[in-house]
């Protein structure tokens, strides 16, 4: 970035130097004025450079979208939207339906979010309201660090620790309990299931959502909190009526980001979910998700249609992540408006 600095600075400035005398000849008053005006109107070299870089990023995203669209075109031609509701996925016989993976993605993410949100809200409240000052920054560091632990490490732990544990302890327990009679949880053998994947996803999402919710809570001015305490509120009352009352927007936004992470998480899912393309609501059965099927089959595609179907699922993920971002913005906007009116 530094080498072009003097060179480009000259390029921009030089053309302005000869022109002012001609332009200013018709003016009355100090001839410096038009020069300044022209110089601020002309974009500086830095504006051009950073604009080009921003343009490159936007272009890269357009290229990604275009590549995914072109790559998945055979699928849309062959089945159209029916691809999304196809129940059978069988590469050997050339049947490609995305519904099992869509369902698996929705189930695991919903499970992960339902488990992660209350826990991370509790952690965030603890950090903001009830933690002594000296403990605050180590705890924040811990939460940030845990949010950065690579997902393949979570997957490894899922394979060798959590899944065997589920198999030997939780599954027999659940099947024996009254819960086992419900349709949602049937008998199953393996520890690699939608439930295991959902648990690992929840564990991964907690540090992220906790950090985001904490930021949302901490964004409420500290003076209001102190004011509430001075009026005789307990710390919980101050949290609830002063801080939580204003931070709902941020909490929603954190939920949306957490959902995005759970939807798009690949490694932890592919390593724990069992990778079976079955359409099931049974949490103890193996299943698969959009990301998991891409990760496990992209390298070993059997036909062009197989590849195109996987790319089509990538396009769905791309669309969902952008739509989720849009929805998050709308929620935030709507809540802001609701709060104002």
């Amino acid at each position: 970035m530094s080498p072009p600095l003097p060179d480009q600075a000259l390029k921009v400035r030089q053309p302005t130097l000869p022109s002012p005398p001609r332009k200013s000849s018709g003016h009355i008053g100090p001839s410096r004025l038009p020069i300044r005006v022209r110089r601020t109107c002309r974009p500086s070299w830095l504006r051009c450079l950073t604009g080009a870089l921003a343009g490159a990023l936007v272009l890269a995203v357009a290229l990604i979208a275009g590549e995914l669209w072109v790559g998945s075109l055979p699928v849309w031609r062959e089945w159209g939207p029916g691809f999304l509701s196809g129940r059978v996925w069988d590469p050997t016989s050339g049947q490609f339906g995305a519904l099992p993976f869509l369902a698996g993605t929705l189930i695991t993410s919903a499970l992960a979010l339902a488990l992660a949100l209350p826990v991370s809200l509790g952690i965030a409240l603890l950090l903001v309201g009830f933690t002594p000052r000296p403990m605050e920054s180590p705890l924040i560091f811990l939460v940030d660090f845990l949010a950065g632990v690579p997902s393949v490490v979570f997957g490894l732990w899922g394979i060798f620790v959590l899944a065997p544990l589920m198999e030997s302890h939780l599954i027999p327990f659940v099947v024996a309990s009254p819960l086992g009679r419900l349709d949602l949880i049937g008998s199953a053998g393996s520890g690699f299931s939608l439930l295991t994947a959902g648990l690992v996803l929840a564990l991964m999402t907690i540090p992220l959502t906790a950090a985001l919710i904490r930021e949302a809570l901490a964004a409420v001015p500290r003076t209001q909190w102190e004011g509430a305490l001075a009026l005789g509120c307990t710390r919980w009352e101050a949290l609830r009526h002063v801080i939580l009352a204003q931070a709902w927007t941020g909490i929603w936004a954190a939920a949306v980001v957490g959902l995005g992470r759970a939807l798009g998480e690949t490694m932890a899912t592919v390593m724990t979910i069992g990778n079976r393309p079955d359409l099931t609501l049974d949490l103890l059965q193996g299943g698969s998700t959009l990301t998991a099927v891409i990760a496990s089959e992209f390298v070993v595609t059997t036909s062009d249609m197989h590849m195109a179907s996987l790319v089509a699922m990538g396009l769905i993920l791309f669309g969902v992540s952008f739509a989720l971002h849009g929805a998050g913005r709308l929620v935030v906007l709507g809540l802001h408006r609701g709060a104002r009116s």
């Binding site: 990023l57 995914l68 798009g264 891409i294 990538g314 791309f318 992540s321 971002h325």
Partner: peptide, 15 residues
């Protein structure tokens, strides 16, 4: 930028 930050990383790999 904001939307890309939520893009599943495997999609970037496929592209």
């Amino acid at each position: 930028c904001e939307a890309l930050a939520g893009l599943p990383s495997i999609v970037a790999g496929m592209a």
